[in-house]
Simulated assay, not measured.
Amino acid sequence: MLDIFDILGPVMVGPSSSHTAGAVRIGRMARTLLGAEPVRAEIGLHGSFAETGQGHGTDRALVAGLLGLKPDDLGIPDSFAIADNQGLAFHFHTVSLREAHPNTAVIEVSSADGKHLTLQAASTGGGRIRVDRLDGVEVNFTGIFNTLVIRHQDVAGELSRILNELSVSGINIANMRLCRDRRGGDGLTVVETDQRIPADALERLRAVYGVLTVTYYEKED
């Protein structure tokens, strides 16, 4: 059964939900997961994004998202000028990825205080996105839920401690995935939740033994 979003599509600045609205959301996701205001971005475009993205405004949409704009913001066409005024330097190039969605971007972004993030995400249609990789680790989440990205040590009982903090806060888990680079190394747990995560719960999660960083993406209203 289709919902009203499937029929009408997102409220956005056009011309394309995939190349514009989805691209804005990819940029916003990279900004949020970086956890700081970006000052530099290296943006790789794959497939259709590379071939027709400039004509569809994909490049301006991605930069708009990095600036924190939403898909319905009238400033999207002027994002390059806004980025220049706000001190965001960016560069586009073409990438060729194996088995990637044709509307895929790879964004390497950094902040003035030294934070760095590499995100690979696809615009899957109707303004929706899917994050496929974070800092080289394969993931799979969409941003349609409130989403926690928790980096932690791969030690016994770590996931149980994280889930206990969410339970104490009355947070219901919609989806969850645990990834790691190697046994005993660093883990990456992505938790999609039905409820918004209150600030005090985020602070308790950050204080859990073995947790390195906690990043929270709150879904759009």
Score class of each variant (00 low, 15 high):
residue 1 M to N: 13
residue 1 M to V: 08
residue 4 I to M: 10
residue 5 F to S: 11
residue 8 L to S: 09
residue 11 V to C: 10
residue 13 V to M: 09
residue 13 V to I: 15
residue 15 P to F: 05
residue 15 P to Q: 10
residue 16 S to W: 01
residue 22 G to M: 14
residue 24 V to R: 10
residue 25 R to F: 06
residue 25 R to E: 11
residue 26 I to P: 11
residue 26 I to R: 07
residue 27 G to W: 00
residue 28 R to D: 06
residue 30 A to S: 14
residue 31 R to M: 13
residue 32 T to Q: 06
residue 32 T to S: 14
residue 32 T to D: 07
residue 34 L to W: 04
residue 39 V to G: 15
residue 45 L to M: 15
residue 46 H to L: 02
residue 46 H to Q: 09
residue 46 H to Y: 04
residue 47 G to N: 08
residue 48 S to G: 01
residue 49 F to H: 12
residue 51 E to K: 15
residue 51 E to R: 15
residue 52 T to H: 15
residue 55 G to N: 14
residue 55 G to S: 10
residue 55 G to K: 12
residue 56 H to I: 00
residue 59 D to F: 01
residue 62 L to G: 02
residue 62 L to W: 02
residue 62 L to I: 07
residue 64 A to L: 05
residue 65 G to F: 03
residue 66 L to T: 02
residue 70 K to Y: 06
residue 70 K to M: 05
residue 70 K to P: 01
residue 70 K to A: 08
residue 71 P to A: 03
residue 75 G to Q: 12
residue 76 I to R: 11
residue 76 I to S: 05
residue 78 D to M: 03
residue 79 S to A: 14
residue 79 S to V: 00
residue 79 S to R: 03
residue 81 A to L: 12
residue 81 A to V: 06
residue 81 A to Q: 10
residue 84 D to A: 14
residue 86 Q to H: 02
residue 90 F to E: 03
residue 93 H to K: 12
residue 98 R to K: 14
residue 99 E to S: 06
residue 101 H to N: 15
residue 101 H to D: 11
residue 102 P to W: 09
residue 104 T to R: 10
residue 105 A to K: 02
residue 106 V to Y: 03
residue 106 V to I: 07
residue 107 I to D: 00
residue 110 S to G: 08
residue 110 S to R: 13
residue 111 S to A: 10
residue 113 D to H: 02
residue 113 D to G: 04
residue 113 D to M: 02
residue 114 G to Y: 09
residue 117 L to Y: 04
residue 117 L to A: 04
residue 119 L to Y: 00
residue 120 Q to N: 03
residue 123 S to I: 00
residue 125 G to I: 02
residue 126 G to P: 11
residue 129 I to R: 07
residue 131 V to F: 04
residue 133 R to C: 10
residue 134 L to R: 08
residue 135 D to G: 13
residue 138 E to V: 11
residue 139 V to D: 05
residue 139 V to L: 05
residue 141 F to M: 03
residue 142 T to Q: 13
residue 151 R to K: 13
residue 152 H to C: 09
residue 153 Q to C: 10
residue 155 V to M: 12
residue 158 E to Y: 00
residue 165 E to H: 02
residue 166 L to N: 10
residue 167 S to A: 15
residue 169 S to L: 04
residue 170 G to T: 05
residue 171 I to T: 10
residue 175 N to L: 04
residue 175 N to V: 07
residue 179 C to A: 14
residue 180 R to A: 00
residue 181 D to H: 08
residue 181 D to C: 07
residue 183 R to D: 08
residue 184 G to W: 04
residue 184 G to Q: 09
residue 185 G to V: 05
residue 185 G to P: 10
residue 185 G to W: 02
residue 188 L to V: 05
residue 189 T to P: 13
residue 189 T to W: 03
residue 190 V to C: 09
residue 195 Q to G: 07
residue 195 Q to V: 01
residue 196 R to H: 11
residue 202 L to F: 10
residue 202 L to Q: 06
residue 203 E to Y: 00
residue 204 R to H: 05
residue 206 R to E: 04
residue 208 V to D: 04
residue 212 L to S: 01
residue 213 T to D: 12
residue 213 T to E: 13
residue 214 V to M: 03
residue 214 V to P: 09
residue 215 T to Y: 04
residue 216 Y to N: 06
residue 221 D to S: 12
